[in-house]
Write a protein that binds this DNA or RNA. Sequence first.
DNA 1: ATGACTGTTGGTAACAGA
Length: 264
Amino acid sequence: MRIATWNVNSVGARLPRLLPWLEDIAPDVVALQETKTANFPTADVQALGYEVAHNGDGRWNGAALLSRVGLADVALHFPGQPGYAGDDDALFEVPVVEARAVGATCGGLRMWSLYVPNGRSVDHAHYRYKLAWLDALQAALAPEVAAGPFVVTGDFNVAPTDDDVWDIADFAGSTHVTPAERERLTALLGLGLRDVIPRPGKNDRPFTYWDYRAGMFHKDKGMRIDLVYASTSLTVSDAYVDRAARKGTGPSDHAPVVVDLEMP
DNA sequence: ATGACTGTTGGTAACAGA
């Protein structure tokens, strides 16, 4: 089974890249993030043989699963998913559960597409939200990991190791690399998952994100923050970053990760 | 070159992204 994850940075803006990419790569299941719409272009991907589960509510966020091997038991949000209460401690603010997760069972594989909160800065309420979100995620996924073949994938907004950013010295005091964030990843792996690290890309680093600005892609100043966490019982026959999708006209700032699994 | 972006919206400036 071929699965993939891709933060498309607006599925509407990316449709001219997404549709030919689906035909070229032909994944069985695709996890998308940052769809940035309440109106997923369902008919366009259905025409290519995919069923769609989308959790999107407008301008920000949005996660989807596309599958051509069946799509059952769809869940929008995970159980206990925290909401975001905003930038301050306003007494009457009601936390909003954002469109950052969708789960489904596809061809015998239980799979989640996630867009983990960014965190913004370590002293920001969004960072505390990010940590709480990852804590709740781990608790929610535990029974599903135990139940059978499982993959949780998407934009984790955490670089697992110092080697997963272009230069750790440039990240002093930043989010995405803190021990607290990385501890949450370790806890997730502790459920019985492995980090499926793609084959090395340019300069031997399988980065998946490069800022649009300052020629970062050209300089390969990237980060590996789009992750695939798969059951340790699953055999991985290949995994790579599709750097070609980050090139050319109108790319996302993230590249897709493509993984070939052998289902039991 | 201490430079450099992209997407969305009761939109045309503000915010988010990482």
